[in-house]
């Protein structure tokens, strides 16, 4: 059962990591605009400026 000695802390720390990530994302305002997050993925912001301009006016 010595396997538990590192498996249990590993499982717990992974869970805590998830919780910390959730709390961070909550504080960072990622839950303030759920519908916006869903459509912002379609935005061309990350592309080069003139490409995104061309796309938008098509």
């Amino acid at each position: 059962m010595s396997v538990l000695l590192y498996l249990v802390p590993a499982a717990l720390s992974l869970g805590l990591l998830g919780l910390a990530a959730f709390l961070w994302s909550l504080r960072a305002g990622q839950y303030d605009d759920l519908e916006g997050a869903a459509v912002r993925v379609l935005s061309d912001d990350d592309l080069h400026e003139d490409i995104s301009d061309r796309n938008r006016h098509e």
Binding site: G36, V39, R40, L42, S43, D44, D45, S52, R56
Partner: peptide, 8 residues
């Protein structure tokens, strides 16, 4: 009413 509005 659409995603493009956000950017615009």
């Amino acid at each position: 009413d659409c995603a493009a509005c956000i950017d615009e």
